[in-house]
Amino acid sequence: MSKHIEVRPEIYTKIRDFMKKLGADDFIKCFNCGTCTVACPIAEVLGIVPFSRKIIRYIMLGLEEDLVNSKEILLCLHCGECSEYCPKGANPAETMHALKTYIIQNYLLKR
């Protein structure tokens, strides 16, 4: 069953701890409704869906590969529309912002 990607709880914990320091860890409230995706003005235009719901799933499951290769994180404009509509009162825009920092610090700078 090689086509299954292994979840990595330690990556999740690491990102969550990082986010916590930046005050952006409320993504854990996400119950996967997809409102942020429809609210996002760039998701549809650039055809990068589902955004940012998918990214949050990747963090939760600790799918490092997928996270590092998600161009969405770098494309996000932090307009805050998703946060405006989130029924959980979470702040996906903040999450994207913090995640951008995380990815740059941990992967892009190291490359």
């Binding site: 299954h4 990607i5 292994e6 979840v7 996967n32 589902p50 799933r57 499951l61 799918l63």
Partner: peptide, 11 residues
């Protein structure tokens, strides 16, 4: 994981 359509494995 049906909401991102990825096969995952949890050890």
């Amino acid at each position: 994981e049906a909401t991102i359509n990825k096969n995952i494995v949890i050890p």
